[in-house]
Nucleic acid binder design. Structure first.
Lengths: 200, 200
DNA sequence: AAATAGTTTAACCAAATGGTTAAATTTGCA
DNA sequence: TGCAAATTTAACCATTTGGTTAAACTATTT
């Protein structure tokens, strides 16, 4: 097997371990084990934990951002775009259920790096902000500023993933199947909720 | 000064350090320094970090829960209660801005303990759930289940605190004063948002 | 004054952990 | 075949950190 494959095995293993245990909780030895190699070789490819973490973390994020940008810049009415963003975002979280926690940790660990990365990837909110403001002025949607709408949207999407261990216990008698059903309902519930709240 | 005062100094110091750096990031030495004592004395009062952490964490939570229960069990219409919960919750977060992150960490670290604690404190959601279901049946509010409403509510309230380092940079040009203004607007925005979404 | 609890000092311990090293071995490729 | 890169082995290092210990000192109480 080529060196590329080994590197990929490492990244895959790091992915799993990091996303389950976070940067602090992850052990280099465990990542090596998970990848089926030894610690020396791990450091042969990634000279530090920090470097490995960044490659994994920003690797995942890189997969999410293009979809969002496409939606923002694409055709369609504002409500349609909101619906699409919710769908895209939520399905991504469903496939990467530990990502929100992961992002939160990074938001508080190195916000400049994360912020810069988003800019590099071409994700900026000015377009969207203008779009919202224009719709408000035109009377298409109720009065709201972009930051508030953004916080509402992301908060509603992300909360069930962040709070799962508690929510599942308190609201679903700790039944994971029921909780997954609940998660699958979120997309349509959130979309509906936002539309009712925003559209006059 | 009595031993009680020293214990309180420790708890206060631990509060500050834990809430800024989390359980993992906090150092016993730093807590001792912050309390103006030395490590030996710190362990004289709290024999382990774990024990100290729990006293601090559940100490804070204990202050939040009674207010919520009062609202749930008190008089008033459902919309009024929702408004009151948002106000109570949000003002608590504003006074303890690092609490949400703190809770999230604990949710994922020891969910059983946290869940049990809430039950002990008399916080259960069955009443609220019934109240919501009844209102839906009566047609007072639009069709929604309690878990969804709960996730929406908490998500919207908590998100701006969790995501602050990033949001402030991306949406407010990293201006902390502007961000505090934004936070102060949240209560009314969220209340309004929820009411528009829920009330027919 | 004597006893008790609170507090300091300062050294120490054990475990965990990220990272290094050097030599030996295997594999892929020119 | 022979060279270079990939991989293993296994020991080792430095640092951090939670926690301990014992002796001495101080304040409080009885």
């Amino acid at each position: 097997m080529s060196s590329d494959t080994t590197k990929e095995k490492i990244i895959q293993a790091a992915n799993d371990v990091f996303i389950l245990k976070g940067m602090d909780g992850a052990r280099m030895q465990e990542i090596a084990d998970e990848a089926g190699i030894n610690k020396a070789l791990l450091h042969y490819y990634f000279h530090s934990k920090e470097q490995l973490f960044k490659e994994v973390f920003y690797g995942i994020l890189s997969k999410l951002i293009p979809g969002l940008i496409l939606i923002f810049k694409g055709e369609g009415s504002l409500p349609d775009k909101i619906e699409a963003v919710v769908a895209e975002y939520d399905s991504f979280m469903f496939r990467n259920p530990f990502l929100p926690q992961f992002v939160i940790r990074e938001i508080n660990r190195d916000p400049d790096q994360l912020s810069g990365f988003m800019s590099d990837k071409g994700l900026d909110f000015e377009l969207v902000e203008k779009m919202i403001n224009k719709a408000v002025e035109a009377g298409t949607i109720r009065q709201i500023t972009f930051p508030h709408l953004f916080a509402n949207l992301i908060g509603m999407i992300v909360m069930p993933y962040i709070g799962r261990p508690l929510f599942q216990r308190k609201l679903f008698k700790n039944d994971p199947v029921k909780y997954d059903e609940f998660l699958r309902e979120r997309r349509v519930v959130i979309t509906y909720f936002i539309k009712q709240a925003m559209i006059c």
